[in-house]
Design a protein around this nucleic acid. Structure first.
Length: 268
DNA sequence: AGATATTCCTGGAGGC
DNA sequence: TGCCTCCAGGAATATC
């Protein structure tokens, strides 16, 4: 499922094809994903040149020389296919470049989104204005401030994009494991010492996942079709019953209706 | 206000 | 083998 490392991997793959290229053809195979595409999406993108790419939280950014940024979210099953041999079911948006490359945004579950935002006003765009800091900009002090007085479980708070932006279920589970923090602990009751372990643990797990090309679960593949292999490095995610290095056993619980995996022995 | 539940959607897995 | 149910998950929305 695309979280920050998968989006980062995707954007890097797209940049290799799109940077400085003109979009010569923009085809929409339907008019919406999670919500409607901008009505003038094709008109505003066709003929535009890609001036840069980027990422904010789990959103991918494609900037154009017309002052627009195409903001895409991969939801849970979205991926970009580069130079597909043939059209596939769920290819919802297809871009062609002036040097003959093709990109298809494929998203079976259609939880993703595509928006066009004026680049200059991007920070004020509602979905972005509400986001917390990027994990790499997070400090233990800032996190402590956000968590102060909160009684909700730390696991759920780390999934809240307003507190820190870009984490999903996989990397929250893995980061809490690395920091030795119980996912059940109330956010406001995680000690400063542990927060000072948690922030580097988050960054490390994300860095390692990006270096590995993301995690390949059922839905995720890199734009070039290669599979990320970080999933082989999971310590706890989807590993109920596995032995932990501490001698404990990985346990699966449900929090906020979603699975959490952790080691009750070494995560406190 | 803060916490929790529900909704969107498809495909894969597992049970029988 | 086929049919059924369950489950995965991001983020907006609704409901306590």
């Amino acid at each position: 499922m695309p979280e920050l490392p998968e989006v980062e991997t995707t954007v890097r793959g797209l940049a290799a094809v799109l940077q400085d290229r003109q979009l010569t053809r923009v085809e929409t195979r339907r008019e919406d994903l999670r919500r409607a595409f901008p009505v003038d999406l094709r008109q505003r993108l066709t003929g535009a040149r890609v001036s840069g790419l980027g990422r904010r939280a789990k959103y991918g950014l494609i900037h154009t020389d017309r002052g627009d940024t195409m903001v895409f979210h991969l939801g849970m099953s979205g991926r970009w296919r580069i130079d597909p041999r043939q059209a596939e079911a769920h290819d919802h948006l297809v871009l062609e470049t002036d040097d003959g490359r093709t990109l298809a945004l494929n998203d079976p579950r259609r939880f993703g989104s595509v928006d066009l935002v004026p680049t200059a006003e991007m920070e004020a765009w509602p979905a972005f204005a509400a986001l917390g800091p990027e994990p790499f900009d997070l400090t233990a002090g800032n996190l402590a401030e956000q968590l102060k007085g909160r009684s909700a479980a730390i696991k759920l708070l780390l999934l809240d994009q307003r507190i820190v932006a870009g984490l999903g279920n996989i990397y929250v589970c893995e980061a809490l494991f690395r920091a030795g923090i119980s996912p059940l602990r109330a956010g406001g009751r995680v000690s400063k010492t542990r927060l000072e372990r948690l922030v580097p643990a988050i960054c490390a797990v994300l860095d390692e996942a990006i270096a590995a090309g993301g995690s390949s679960l059922r839905d995720y593949a890199r734009p070039d079709g290669e599979l990320g292999y970080f999933s082989k490095a999971f310590a706890v995610y989807d590993r109920a019953g596995a032995a932990c290095a501490c001698g404990g056993t990985v346990k699966r619980i449900v929090q906020g209706g979603r699975s959490t995996w952790y080691c009750p022995k070494c995560q406190r």
